[in-house]
């Protein structure tokens, strides 16, 4: 018997031996909708708090037209940036540095040489201070571009902000890679205290678009 057949045979025998007499009933009595409405001023306020708590810097703007001003402001002295192929062009209006579009894909060393990356996000979770990047979304791009540069600027629209984890999971398609990001890279490995700044981007700016 090959390993596959043998492991499966063992597991079937063991499963039958140990199974309970009555079938297992899965309970989902927890909240599947959040306390705050998706896209509401209140949910944006909570997201602002939780992002800030885990050391992301949040910049609030009221409308799409103000995104560029905020993005260019946080990019500051950055001489070069990388962007996914589908990033709305007007988000960078007024940026004077070099813009490298990741299409065709840049080499890792090229990504290492840019100062920052600008992306959108698929969904954000106010309860946990998290945003999710979907590799398949053209304004978010493949995973490496938000990983290698040391500074990430992420634009989150009100319509994509939900309150709870279950609401976010329901909106996501796992068939392409996803990255859940909650604050800049951090570690709790020294005496179990959280310190920011390890291998991922050490600086994280969020431009939050919507009613404030």
């Amino acid at each position: 018997m090959n390993a596959r057949e043998e492991v499966l045979a063992r597991l079937r025998t063991a499963r039958d031996a140990g199974n309970p007499a009555t079938p297992v009933v899965v309970t989902r009595d927890f909240a599947t909708t959040g306390r705050l409405d998706p896209g509401s001023a209140a949910v944006l306020e909570r997201l602002d708090e939780t992002l800030t708590d885990y050391k992301a810097t949040v910049h609030r703007v009221a409308s799409e037209a103000e995104i560029a001003g905020a993005v260019v402001g946080v990019l500051g002295e950055a001489r070069s940036i990388v962007v996914p192929a589908g990033l709305p062009g007007d988000w960078l209006r007024g940026y004077a540095g070099q813009v490298r579009t990741d299409g065709p894909p840049l080499a890792v060393d090229e990504l290492d040489a840019v100062d920052a990356v600008v992306t959108g996000a698929a969904v954000a979770i106010a309860d946990t201070g998290t945003f999710v990047l979907a590799s398949a979304a053209s304004d978010q791009g493949r995973r490496a571009i938000t990983l290698v540069p040391d500074h990430h600027v992420c634009v989150i629209r009100a319509a994509d902000v939900v309150c709870s984890v279950p609401e976010a999971i329901a909106r996501l398609d796992p068939s392409s890679p996803l990255t859940f990001v909650s604050g800049p890279s951090a570690t709790s490995d020294i005496e179990l205290d959280r310190v920011e700044g390890v291998h991922g981007p050490r600086r994280l700016d969020v431009v939050l678009v919507g009613p404030g």
């Binding site: 939780t50 885990y54 996803l178 990255t179 859940f180 604050g183 890279s185």
Partner: peptide
């Protein structure tokens, strides 16, 4: 509340 990174 959430760890910094979860990859899928």
């Amino acid at each position: 509340r959430m760890n910094p990174y979860t990859s899928t």
